[in-house]
Amino acid sequence: MITVNNLSYSYPKASGPTLKNLDFDIDQGEIFGFLGPSGAGKSTTQKVLYKILHRFDGTIVVKDRHLNDWGNDYFERIGVGFELPNHYLKLTARENLQLFASFYQKENIRDFEELFEIVGLEDDADKCIEEFSKGMSMRLNYIRAIMHDPDILFFDEPTAGLDPINAQKIKRDIAKLKDQGKTVFVTTHDMATADELCDRVSFIVDGEIRLTENPDVLKREHGKRAVRVELEKGLTKEFPVRELGTNKEFIDFVRSGEISRINTQEATLEEVFIKVTGKTLKE
């Protein structure tokens, strides 16, 4: 669906390139994530892909067509969820949607009530944005991005500023979009979101992709293939996953008391990120 080869981009007057020879591809129906700290080039990559930034080096092919060959019809096919809320404050949520919807082909516009319901804004649709919290505005950002039923979606920190319940609603809906065959490109520095949502992630640092892989594979590869068992009485022991069911020591241990918890010892995505890039996501 999206193929990027050797993508480099420099902002005018910048001393060096912000993106350096990026190579990645995103399949149809895939949720692909860009993970990296602030200033790594995540949003810049998206801006190039949704044609806000031009004059890049390299090749970008979207739906079998070079990005530069796409005209305004490209924007009928893509949806963009911005990192920060951006709505007309003096208009209601419904008026905001109506205005922007009027630029798209009518037959593609989804039912507004259904959209408001997805993000729990059905009772606030006729309120002015001035009365909205940041979280409510972010939810409106989300439905504005999907209201014209695009095939490709770009989300920049889609759960930023959301409480856990609403973040979950958005994540659930993104997963639903994937099931419908939509292609989703997410940038985030929130490992939990990436872990939960993405089929594949790329670690991007200083404008370079360091690694691209499935999050589960990464966690397995970089973690210990072991389980840690903790008993109520305070004893803790670690056992290799291999042949765990026939491991006598393990069986004796779990029988020796009430089990408090059992955890696999795979690495977290954050640990993998630090290990691979030598940087933390908060840098």
């Binding site: 044609k51 019809d73 924007f75 404050l89 630029f103």
Partner: peptide
Amino acid sequence: DEKDTNVAKVYGVLPVS
């Protein structure tokens, strides 16, 4: 105001020249 509130960015990704 549109620039201040970043609404201008939305127009950049709409199917209008």
